[in-house]
């Protein structure tokens, strides 16, 4: 159902834009502590960059096969988030109380800062993969419908 775009202009522009969008997504994700942005927006932008690749280059192009591989990572983001919470439990504190991450050489504030970065990566991974998963679900042609047409 989803195929590569006919126009070479659109495909070339897509090839140029996709890495830039992914770079911007990482910037938004890691700059979320210092300015607007964060895990949620970064994850959506990352997912959208793969979405653009699928819509422009077609499902067989290399970035889209990567996206299909990424789909198997559904839930990894949530596991990162819960895992950071679990590490806090193991460190002897409350769930998601990042100051209990047992890292010597870091004071409480730095531990919290690290915890925020890690959980943001978790949120971004979860949202990017979920966006891709929903798009693949919507784009998939059911065999029933195919025989119907």
């Amino acid at each position: 159902m989803i195929e590569a775009h006919d126009s070479p202009i659109v495909r070339s522009a897509g090839k140029l834009l996709i890495p830039l969008i992914q770079l911007f997504a990482l910037y938004v994700l890691f700059f979320g502590q210092y300015g607007p942005g964060g895990g949620f927006a970064g994850g959506v932008i990352l997912g959208t960059s793969f979405l653009l690749a699928i819509l422009v280059l077609g499902p067989q192009a290399p970035p889209c096969r990567l996206a299909h591989q990424l789909e198997h990572g559904d839930g990894v983001g949530l596991m990162i988030f819960v895992g950071v919470g679990g590490l806090c439990l193991i460190g002897g504190g409350e769930f998601l109380n990042y100051s209990n991450l047992q890292l010597p050489s870091l004071d409480d504030a730095a531990r919290r800062s690290l915890g925020i970065v890690l959980t943001q990566i978790g949120v971004a991974a979860d949202i990017a993969v979920t966006a891709l998963s929903i798009v693949f679900s919507l784009g998939r042609q059911n065999s029933q419908e195919a025989s119907h047409e």
């Binding site: 210092y34 964060g38 559904d74 949530l78 919290r112 949202i127």
Partner: peptide, 30 residues
């Protein structure tokens, strides 16, 4: 938290449970 953006600090640290459940909701939607 050494996080200049207060919104991020509140979302990811003070209200981390809320964000965790939201992430779970998105996962469930997928």
């Amino acid at each position: 938290t050494e996080t200049p953006n207060v919104v991020t600090a509140v979302l990811m640290d003070y209200r981390a449970f809320d964000t965790l459940i939201e992430t779970g909701v998105i996962f469930t939607a997928g």
